[in-house]
């Protein structure tokens, strides 16, 4: 994937992710509604490719107001990833040279790889994850399962131990998928299915949409490093 295409696809996917997030805030109190109504307008401009350079800058400024409003991210990791993609996109669009564009977009791709690798590393070094106890705890008492029925999964420790190892191995081995384009695409499809599963089981729908928006950067980086 060449850089211009990757940047444009990132703009579109990020705009769609922002629209999905922002619409959810329209049921909130007035000031919050105003902030996110503004973000809807800016996201539509980004989606249709209108003045994307300045729109991305305004979205960053608005993002700072949102951070202040909630004294941090509203939805933890997904908001952080949204801001990271947005800041990198803004940096790429304002970068003075092609080399700087590559550094900034490459940084986003690197962070995407780290988002999987570090998540896997911190789990595999924890004995409770290795014996499946941690995932059992997630189902048994954490705030995430979307229904009481899902808590029943905690009664299947062998299944959860297997699932834990599948997740850890996938996350740890994700960087290896960069070696070829087809292995990377396969890894990204598995990753998207993983986020989809998390969205269904734990209600983490925002993660699904926003992580997709970072995928063009890694497809570009893989092509840039190994496709020559």
């Amino acid at each position: 994937m060449n850089m211009d295409v990757a940047i444009r696809v990132t703009e579109i996917l990020l705009a769609l992710a922002f629209l999905q997030q922002s619409v959810e805030h329209l049921v909130a109190a007035k000031y919050e509604r105003t902030l996110f109504a503004l973000r809807i307008v800016l996201s539509l401009l980004l989606l249709f490719g209108i003045a994307t350079q300045w729109v991305s800058l305004l979205l960053v400024v608005l993002g700072l107001f949102v951070l202040r409003r909630f004294q941090g991210p509203y939805n933890g990791g997904s908001d952080r990833m949204s801001l990271l993609i947005l800041c990198c996109l803004c940096g790429v669009l304002f970068a003075p040279t092609d080399q700087w564009r590559e550094y900034i977009f490459g940084y986003l791709a690197l962070q995407l790889v780290l988002s999987y690798f570090i998540s896997g590393w911190v789990k595999i070094t924890n004995s409770e994850w290795r014996n499946g106890r941690a995932l059992q705890d997630v189902f048994r008492f954490s705030a995430y399962p979307v229904s009481e029925a899902l808590r029943g999964w905690a009664r299947y420790p062998r299944l959860l131990c297997f699932m834990s190892w599948m997740v850890m191995m996938f996350e740890i081995l994700f960087p290896v998928s960069l070696l070829t384009q087809s292995s990377l695409i396969a890894a990204l499809v598995i990753a998207a299915i993983f986020h989809f599963g998390n969205a269904c089981l734990f209600g983490l729908n925002r993660f699904f949409w926003v992580w997709l928006a970072a995928y063009p950067s890694i497809l570009w980086l893989q092509d840039r490093i190994f496709g020559m």
């Binding site: 202040r68 952080r80 801001l83 990271l84 800041c87 988002s115 570090i118 998540s119 924890n126 941690a134």
Partner: peptide
């Protein structure tokens, strides 16, 4: 505000390290 932004620019990515 910048302090709040920093963890987004340099994330830790330690999802579910401990429950």
């Amino acid at each position: 505000t910048l302090k709040l932004l920093l963890p987004a620019l340099i994330p830790s990515w330690r999802f579910f390290d401990t429950i």
